[in-house]
């Protein structure tokens, strides 16, 4: 039995249900369970989804870098598909971070955007992986493009640790959200930690399910393309979802 065959039943049936229930629990925690933050009031509740969207994006880009490294080493298309799926889903969560950040910043900082080191590095991260997706969309099945994209995925992930240390390193406006010196923010209430953990579980399960769906779709597209080539070789013409003439 292959690894895929072992994962598929869980990923197709248990994971979406679990992600759905976990997301409902996360919403209940955020809107019904946690108290208002002392300084920011209700708007601080953006924190739980904003931070976990960032975690999911970093997880996605980290997974993509790891899968890309294995792809370059073993030239197995499975890892290339995994990297591509992880980047696509990582980009979704990175976009969520870049949308919710300014909405949170406006009432707290008085501005939608500032070129703070952490914000700037996050935009750079988003741009790197946007280039990755453009490269993949343009390159289609070109193995050379797949290798270039794999290198880009590995180089791009170097931005993630920089984003994480940027608050301490360059002292921008962005607060250190999880832990901070006494009296300088961070999360103080135990209920906030519970909500953060529940939201983390919800986002991680949603991330894994989306990556799985995308990975399976990419695998089917490749298999279909190979089958169509076989049919063509036997004397016919075919298209994959209208992608080729």
């Amino acid at each position: 039995m292959t690894i895929r065959a072992r994962i598929a039943p869980v990923a197709d049936t248990v994971l979406p249900g679990f992600a759905f229930v976990a997301m409902l629990a996360a919403l209940a925690c955020v809107f019904l369970y946690v108290p208002n933050e002392r300084m920011q009031g209700a708007v601080q509740r953006i924190f739980y989804f904003h931070v976990n969207a960032a975690w999911s994006a970093f997880f996605g880009f980290g997974l993509a870098a790891l899968a890309s490294a294995v792809f370059l080493w073993r030239t197995d298309a499975t890892y290339d598909r995994l990297a591509r799926a992880a980047v696509e889903v990582g980009m979704l969560f990175c976009t969520m971070v870049l949308c919710t950040g300014p909405i949170w910043a406006r009432p707290i900082w008085g501005t939608w955007w500032t070129w703070d080191p952490r914000l700037t590095m996050t935009v750079i991260l988003w741009t790197i992986y946007a280039v990755y997706l453009v490269l993949r969309a343009m390159g289609e099945d070109d193995p050379q493009i797949a290798r270039y994209a794999a290198v880009l995925a590995i180089v791009g992930v170097l931005d993630v640790p920089l984003i994480m240390v940027s608050v301490r390193l360059w002292r921008g406006m962005h607060p250190s959200v999880i832990s901070a010196p006494a009296g300088q923010g961070g999360i103080q209430d135990a209920r906030m930690i519970v909500a953060l953990v529940v939201t983390l579980v919800a986002f991680t399960s949603l991330f894994l399910w989306l990556v799985w769906r995308r990975f399976e779709a990419l695998r089917l597209e490749d298999e279909l393309r190979a089958l169509e080539d076989d049919v063509d070789a036997l004397g016919g013409r075919a298209t994959v979802g209208g992608a080729t003439p």
């Binding site: 209700a42 989804f49 919710t100």
Partner: peptide, 19 residues
């Protein structure tokens, strides 16, 4: 506080729209 609620729901709305 109502103004701040508007921002809170906008942020969560953006997440669900993107998803």
């Amino acid at each position: 506080q109502p103004d701040r609620f508007w921002f809170l729901f906008s942020a969560y709305g953006a997440i669900w729209v993107l998803l």
